[in-house]
Amino acid sequence: MTRVDFHTNVGDALLYACRLARKAYQAGQPLVVLADPGRLRAFDERLWTFSPLDFLPHCMADSGLAARTPIVLATDLERAPHHQILLNLAPAVPAQFARFERLLEIVGTSDGELTAGRERYRFYRDRGYPLNNYKQGDQQGA
């Protein structure tokens, strides 16, 4: 059963997502990042700029390199080549999240993000998924 980790009270979700991606990469765990096209473009840019000392190899799911790339950016999970960790940057529950060993959910501080995060939390909880909660304070380090 998929383990679901909620990271809540996150001030800058994309920066925090970059740090989670770096952590997964350094641990040798392939990662799929799910979001809408606009958010994926913004996340792609942040991966290039968030740390001057880190290079996180990544590509889009429709790339011929996706199967060999540790971080894959996707707008849907149909062509996701990895099934270890899914990082959801979308407001809804991913349709095929149960294919993954682990799901990371980031919940920001705005009213809309909190409402969507609570709905996703209830969805997973009501279906018996193991949930872990990591509430962030002033420090945004992952």
Rank of each mutant, 00 (worst) to 15 (best):
M1G: 13
T2G: 04
R3L: 15
V4N: 04
D5T: 11
F6T: 04
F6V: 05
F6H: 03
H7C: 01
H7F: 15
T8M: 10
G11V: 11
D12P: 03
A13F: 01
L14G: 05
L14D: 13
L15G: 12
L15R: 15
L15P: 04
Y16T: 09
A17T: 04
R19H: 14
R19Y: 06
L20E: 03
R22C: 08
R22N: 12
R22T: 11
Y25T: 10
Y25C: 12
Q26F: 07
G28A: 06
V32T: 15
V32I: 15
V32N: 08
V33P: 04
V33E: 03
L34I: 07
A35V: 06
A35N: 06
D36A: 11
D36I: 01
P37C: 05
R39F: 00
R39T: 12
L40Q: 05
R41D: 15
A42M: 11
E45N: 12
E45A: 14
W48Q: 09
T49F: 02
T49D: 11
F50H: 09
F50G: 10
S51C: 13
P52C: 08
P52L: 08
L53K: 14
L53R: 13
F55N: 12
P57F: 08
H58G: 08
M60L: 15
M60S: 15
D62H: 13
D62C: 02
S63W: 09
P70K: 12
I71V: 08
V72R: 01
V72H: 01
L73C: 06
L73M: 12
T75G: 13
D76G: 11
E78Y: 02
R79K: 14
A80N: 04
A80Y: 05
P81S: 09
P81K: 09
H82P: 02
H82L: 03
H83N: 14
Q84L: 10
Q84S: 14
I85F: 04
I85A: 04
I85G: 02
L86T: 08
L86W: 02
L86S: 07
L87M: 11
N88R: 08
N88K: 08
L89G: 02
A90T: 14
A92E: 15
A92G: 03
V93H: 00
V93I: 10
P94L: 10
P94V: 08
P94G: 11
A95W: 00
Q96V: 11
Q96D: 15
Q96P: 06
A98H: 14
A98F: 09
R99V: 06
F100Q: 02
E101C: 12
L103Q: 01
V107C: 07
T109P: 03
T109V: 11
T109R: 13
G112W: 06
E113T: 03
L114M: 09
T115H: 13
T115M: 14
A116L: 02
G117H: 05
R118V: 00
E119C: 00
R120K: 15
Y124F: 15
R125N: 05
R125I: 01
R125G: 01
R125S: 09
D126R: 03
D126C: 00
R127L: 10
G128P: 04
G128V: 03
Y129K: 02
Y129D: 01
L131Q: 01
L131N: 00
N132P: 00
N132K: 12
N133A: 08
K135E: 08
Q140M: 07
Q140N: 08
G141V: 13
